[in-house]
Structure formats: structure tokens, C-alpha cells
């Protein structure tokens, strides 16, 4: 359910992003509650990744504000912060649609880089660290232990000393999530974590994400096309089309919202739409894991994707 204003971890208010004449996001408002998995779905080019880039500082939004509230009441206006400060101070971590690992570094090194800021302080900004001060040595040991903890969760302990670029695709996806978790975030933004995974891997991913939410008490913001993931684990779904929010609610509400079906299947004829809605609902209801029910773009849709 949409969280009430007070309890919200993340409040996006009237967010707009224009590139020249193109409005990628138009007046988008939604909230993400603490300890919830919030999914953002929508057809290709709906502006989902643009929303992520605005939240994590890679784009500066044209209008609107993004407010993150920590549990202790500390507020951050993300739209005004540099990208690296959003991760460093506001504690928002993200992954990328096209995996961005440090391919030539080992799996463990990837996780150590994610703990850069903690280690940097412990190493006295390199000055004392160069003499291997006890503080740094201890922080380094703890960082390795913390990395190992996340390697276990991601099932990658055996590959810790292999180059990240050598891992199979599914492992790379999980490593990227583990790396984001090593920054100790309060909000984890995942951009299509299940893309390219087989049904089994995507099942594992669901387990990992639920574990992050339930045990670590960390909220997740998710962009996903794979409906088995979206419907299976999210508490709250926001649907975008052409940069505009067309629906917002629990998975059950979204499933039966005609506007959503229309956006996905591009059907304009009302009668035909109803038929398609019924079929889609049936498909989602008895979904075999991993079937991409709604990701397919039908020919009726007029405009091409934009990223």
C-alpha cells in the first residue's frame, strides 16, 4: 500500500525531467515506505530508468523534489546532492540495467571498493594507512568479514578470488546487489535485477531480495519487467507510461487496473481491452515462474522506446 506521508522513507514530489523538448518524466509523485519493496513498472521507454537516475543523482531533475528521511528523522533532498554524496550520506545504493562491475578486479575487491568511505576514514585518508596503522588493519579485517557475509548471502564465497568479469551472468547480477549492499544503504535501487535470468535464478533472486527486506530491514526500489518477480515480492507498485504515473497500489490492485493493461498492450478498443485484461489476469494468476507476461510490446503501441 502507498505509505502515508509521515512513515515514508522516500517521497518523490512533482518530479519532472525534460531533455530539450522531450519530457521523460512529467509531474511524477509517489512514496516508498520503510521496509517495503516498491516496484516501478511500465513499458519500454516509460521513463523508469530516468526516475532512478534522478533519485541517485546521475541526472538533475528539471522540477520537483526527492526527499529521503532516515529513521532518526534526518532528511536529505536528493535532487540537490552530488551522485556520490547520495550514496555516501543519504545511503541510497543502486545497481544498473547493464551490469557495471569492476570486471578486472576480483569479486572480493569489488565488495571492498564498495566500503571505500569507511576504509578511507580508517586509513586516515591514506596518511596513516600507508604505515598500516592498527586502526586501518582492523577496519580492513572487518571489511573483509563484512564482504564475506554478503558473499555468503549471494552464494559467491567460492568465487571470491575470481575476476568479476569471469562470473556467469546470473552471478554477476547477484554480485552487483551484494556490492550495493556493502555500502550499507537504507534504500536499495535495483534496475531490472532479473533481466536475463532463467526462472530458477530469478527464484533465487526473489529469495535474496526478500531476505534483504525482512532481515536487514532495508527498503527496495525495483524496476522490473519480469512479472514473476514484481508480483511475487513487491508490496507496492507504481506504473509509468510516457513518464506519467498511470497507476499506484498493491499488486492486486495493479493487476486489475484497466489503465495498466491498456498501457502494456496498447489496446484502444474498449471491448477488445476487456478480453485482453481477462487473459492477462488469468496468465498472471497462474503464472509459471519467469514467464514475461507483460514485457512484450504489441504492435498496436505507436511510439518506440526511449532511454
Amino acid at each position: 500500500m502507498a505509505a502515508s506521508g509521515q512513515d515514508a522513507l522516500l517521497r518523490v514530489e512533482h518530479l519532472s525531467m525534460r531533455f530539450g523538448g522531450l519530457t521523460a518524466i512529467g509531474d511524477l509523485s509517489f512514496t516508498a515506505a520503510r521496509n517495503d519493496i516498491t516496484a516501478i513498472i511500465g513499458p519500454n521507454g516509460a521513463g523508469k530508468t530516468t526516475v532512478f537516475n534522478c533519485l541517485t543523482g546521475f541526472y538533475k531533475p528539471t522540477e520537483g523534489s526527492v526527499i529521503l528521511t532516515h529513521e532518526d528523522g534526518k532528511q536529505f533532498l536528493l535532487e540537490r546532492m552530488d551522485d556520490f554524496r547520495i550514496s555516501q550520506q543519504a545511503k541510497v545504493a543502486r545497481t544498473f540495467q547493464n551490469i557495471r562491475l569492476f570486471a578486472g578486479m576480483t569479486v572480493l575487491e569489488n565488495l571492498m571498493v564498495a566500503q571505500h568511505n569507511t576504509l578511507m576514514r580508517a586509513s586516515g585518508f591514506t596518511v596513516t594507512g600507508i604505515f598500516n596503522s592498527p586502526t586501518y588493519a582492523r577496519a580492513n579485517r572487518e571489511a573483509i568479514e563484512f564482504s564475506e557475509h554478503w558473499l555468503e548471502k549471494a552464494g559467491l564465497v567460492d568465487r571470491a578470488d575470481d575476476a568479476a568479469g569471469e562470473l556467469p551472468y546470473g552471478d554477476q547480477r547477484r554480485l552487483e546487489i551484494a556490492r550495493a549492499m556493502c555500502t550499507k544503504p537504507v534504500l536499495l535501487c535495483l534496475d531490472e535485477p532479473a533481466a536475463g535470468l532463467n526462472p530458477r535464478e530469478s527464484e533465487d533472486l526473489n529469495g535474496l531480495l526478500l531476505n534483504i527486506r525482512n532481515e536487514q530491514k532495508i527498503a527496495i526500489l525495483l524496476i522490473e519487467h519480469d512479472m514473476s518477480v514484481v508480483m511475487g515480492i513487491s508490496d507496492h507498485i507504481v506504473v509509468l507510461d510516457y513518464g506519467v504515473k498511470i497507476s499506484d497500489g498493491s499488486p492486486a490492485e495493479i493487476r486489475s487496473d484497466p489503465a495498466v493493461i491498456r498501457a502494456y498492450l496498447g489496446v484502444e478498443d474498449e471491448e477488445e481491452a476487456e478480453v485482453v485484461v481477462e487473459r492477462a489476469v488469468a496468465a498472471v494468476a497462474k503464472k509459471p515462474a519467469g514467464k514475461k507476461v507483460a514485457a512484450k510490446k504489441p504492435p498496436a503501441r505507436k511510439k518506440g522506446g526511449r532511454k
Binding site: F58, D83, L101, M105, M120, I130
Partner: peptide, 30 residues
């Protein structure tokens, strides 16, 4: 000094920068 720096966060950040600058920024590296 170089060998030592490689084992410090600053050295790892250099190598991470070489590998992928955008990922570096997403991990809070200045």
C-alpha cells in the same frame, strides 16, 4: 609506496575508476 597504495582504499578506488567511473560514483566514491 605504489605497492602499498594499491592495498589501501585510495589505490582500489583508482583501479575501480579505471574499470568503471559511473559504478564508482554510485558507490559513494568521490
Amino acid at each position: 609506496v605504489t605497492m602499498r597504495l594499491r592495498r589501501l582504499p585510495v589505490g582500489r578506488a583508482w583501479e575501480a575508476l579505471r574499470e568503471d567511473e559511473i559504478a564508482c560514483r554510485s558507490l559513494g566514491i568521490n
